[in-house]
Write a protein that binds this DNA or RNA. Structure first.
Lengths: 345, 345
DNA sequence: ATGAAAGCGCTAACAA
DNA sequence: TTGTTAGCGCTTTCAT
């Protein structure tokens, strides 16, 4: 491990270039209104000294940090089991990088952490926040409101009774679910079951709604509640098989659960898709492409969601942005989904 | 999105509490040597005003940021296909959180990004860096050295000819590989093949070495070079089958490749483990537990690696830490692995 | 086009 | 124990 050496300051550069600190500052920040000769001299001094501006000092006066926080509020370890999270992060990172912003990652491990996150957000370390994985009863939005920091949510926040306008990016969970179920119906299936996700998340609730849109008076026994995990999918599939042995199709609210269902189906001696057709949601390639048979699923562009969230937030932060008219206050976005056909349906 | 309100300063709190700024500062930073009455008064004022210290101002004088950067230098999108990354991150996050440090995530997307990362690290935004996924020819270590910032590497860095002492955390790749191959040999297998990872990463090279340790004069045709991806595993397995149809065991350098190999094996009509035994590496549960048959594999405690990296870095940063004696300069750590037996071998 | 000077909000000597 | 004071390194009026 190396030890930190003392860094040159603006002052040092100014001395070396034979100009004032103000001039160096101007050059460092774009150099408008400074004679070319001086710009050159200053640049040279900067290079020779290896000068890098001290962000703390800069932020102290500009009140900007060029950093945004990504808050992943997932009490469970689930986030880490699926690549969803990583993809979003990647999209966010790309967009932020393109705008010279840094990404500060805040992972919360349960209730105790919320206070810490709240403090951090309120502490003026970052210019804005991107918040994920909210459950209905999550106290985080409240904290964030209090922190008074611009925020974009990932996924439609579910809490009700909130008057404030929130900005979020979500995919069309309901529409995607409809497409999936319609596809199954189009295959001639009539006993189409649904394995739900954790219903305290809007994504799960919306997918269930989509299922119901198509299966208007579905046998309630065809709906099994689960939690987005493979084990949950297995459990739900067992239930379903027991309650309705005549089930001929299953729409699972994500790929992980679908893969669990697939295993149970195989174990029960049923062939997929011949006896029972299966559709998942997410299109997580490592999962969906490697089940047997490969999974037909509803794809959402996760990385794009991340990118969009970042873009929305940055736009809202932009001081020169138009305060009214088109694109003034960013508003929520819902991205379309597409059905990807593979072997399972 | 909410707009930011002007925050109260130390000054304001001092005025309200009827004390000096210095006293408020003391209270805010622990409150030693301040009379209880005043501590109380100040705390009250802080609460009433909703005062939160301005980090920029604080860092400017303390030169600490209580933030460390995590640099993930993975040109490929591979990081995002496997949960490895997320697990490390989680371990790191936990440890940092426990020490009131923030995590700044720096994702690099290829060469162009390196300069940006270098600038950031040199910019004095963070107190230290945790760096991952180095390839042999990676320019990042060089940049980091120049930035002169304390660093701990994840995985043994492979570049040679570097005199400086580097601190890293790695798992015992070579030993783990030996265990795996010995297990296969113990099963009576004699034609044991190896599918390597990307050999420009030390983890892959070390696992290959471990394989060779046991298979001292292995038929070179039993070694197929791949790249840690499932597709690479499939390709390698095809090669292997073609070159050595009598292969009776395969040790793949990670679970993803092992799952690919499993598919090819099944496709070729071979039974696992009866005809060919298979062992992976990593113990990525979502993968290893859900292959058919479930994968026997070498487990490494990824989260612990992350935690350890953070701990090492923080210890090195600690100003009050003993500069000599036990635990003075942190040194590298290699964590043990364990063989997890499932169905495939 | 350039420089002088005033602070941004905080901590840390030093005095009292 | 508490207050006074001098900066930390930078940006930004305001003069020149």
């Amino acid at each position: 491990m190396t030890d930190t050496a003392p860094r040159p300051t603006l002052e040092a550069v100014a001395a070396r270039a034979g100009v004032s600190r103000a001039t160096v500052s101007r050059v460092v920040n774009g150099g408008d209104g400074v004679r070319d000769v001086l710009v050159e001299r200053v640049r040279k001094a900067v290079d020779e000294l290896g000068y890098v501006p001290n962000q703390a000092a800069r932020s102290l006066v500009t009140r900007r940090h060029d950093a945004i926080a990504v808050v992943v509020a997932e009490p469970e370890t689930r986030v880490f089991a699926d690549p969803f999270f990583a993809h979003q992060l990647r999209g966010i990172s790309k967009e932020l990088t393109a705008h010279d912003n840094q990404l500060v990652l805040l992972l919360t491990e349960g209730r105790d952490d919320h206070a810490r996150v709240g403090r951090y957000l309120a502490g003026g370390h970052v210019d804005g926040a991107l918040v994920f994985s909210l459950h209905l009863d999550d106290p985080l939005p409240e904290l964030i409101q209090r922190a008074g920091i611009p925020t974009v949510f990932g996924g439609r926040p579910g809490w009700s009774g909130d008057r404030r306008e929130v900005v979020y990016v979500d995919s069309d969970n309901r529409g995607g679910a409809r497409d999936a179920v319609r596809h199954l119906a189009g295959l001639g299936r009539t006993r189409i079951a649904h394995i739900t996700g954790a219903l305290d998340q809007t994504s799960a609730a919306d997918r269930l709604d989509g299922y119901r849109d198509v299966m208007v008076d579905a046998d309630p026994r065809l709906i099994a509640e689960a939690d987005f995990t493979p084990a949950g999918g297995e459990r739900a599939m067992h239930e379903l098989l027991e309650r309705c042995p005549d089930v001929d199709a299953v729409f699972a609210a994500n790929d992980l659960m679908a893969s669990g269902a697939l295993r149970v189906l195989r174990g029960s001696g049923r062939r997929v898709p011949d006896d029972v057709a299966v559709i998942g949601f997410d299109d997580m390639r490592p999962v969906a492409e490697q089940t047997d048979p490969p999974l037909t699923t509803v794809r959402q562009d996760i990385e794009e969601m991340g990118r969009l969230m970042a873009r929305l937030l940055l736009r809202g932060l932009d001081r020169d942005a138009p305060r009214e008219g088109v694109g003034a206050t960013p508003s929520s976005v819902v991205l379309p989904t597409t059905l990807v056909r593979r072997g399972s349906a």
